[in-house]
């Protein structure tokens, strides 16, 4: 298992790309920040509306902003994959060693997974369809509020522990 992970986590082609061009790493960092702003700006706005902020908004139209959140998430996953796959080019540490000891990175990945699970619950329990009926000035059901609060907590948590990764153990 370890050998397999060590094999798939290091991407020599990415390492070469990062080593050849000094702008690759900072470009990925900019993508990561733009992506998180898009994610919080749209998904966070949707969550806040469900929690009662900006109640003048009908819920269904706000959903049309969510593809931008998905786009932001894709930017983050793409740049984040580069940070992992090309890590060796930056700090000469195997990403596997970081992954198994860095509590912050582990927490971040767990939080992202939980956010995905939260989204699954939102879509599978019918809450997603229910909130589409919420018009201007109307309150969201408690279940929707709980899901929205969880989403906000998890995404801000992702940002927090994500920022801490470089302060965690970076090798064994």
């Amino acid at each position: 298992m370890e050998a397999f992970l060590r094999y798939i986590l290091r991407w020599p082609i990415l390492e070469q790309f990062i080593q050849a061009y000094a702008w690759v790493w900072p470009l990925a960092e900019v993508m990561h920040f733009v992506g998180l702003a898009l994610l919080i700006g749209t998904v966070g706005l949707f969550d806040l509306r469900l929690l009662g902020m900006g109640k003048g908004l009908a819920v269904a139209p706000v959903r049309r902003l969510l593809p931008w959140g998905v786009f932001g998430f894709v930017l983050c996953v793409a740049s984040g994959s580069l940070f992992v796959g090309g890590l060796w080019a930056n700090i000469a540490v195997h990403p596997y060693d970081v992954l198994i000891v860095n509590r912050f990175l582990q927490t971040k990945l767990i939080f992202i997974g939980l956010a995905g699970l939260n989204l699954l619950v939102f879509n599978l329990t019918g809450v997603s369809r229910a909130v589409d009926q919420i018009g201007p000035g109307e309150d969201a059901p408690p279940m929707a509020k709980a899901i929205a609060a969880a989403s906000l907590f998890l995404w801000f948590g992702v940002i927090y522990v994500g920022r801490l990764i470089v302060w965690g153990n970076l090798s064994i």
Binding site: G56, L57, A58, P61, R64, W68, P136
Partner: peptide
């Protein structure tokens, strides 16, 4: 993007 979202709200 997202027409139908009230700008004033």
């Amino acid at each position: 993007f997202a027409p139908g979202v009230s700008l004033s709200a």
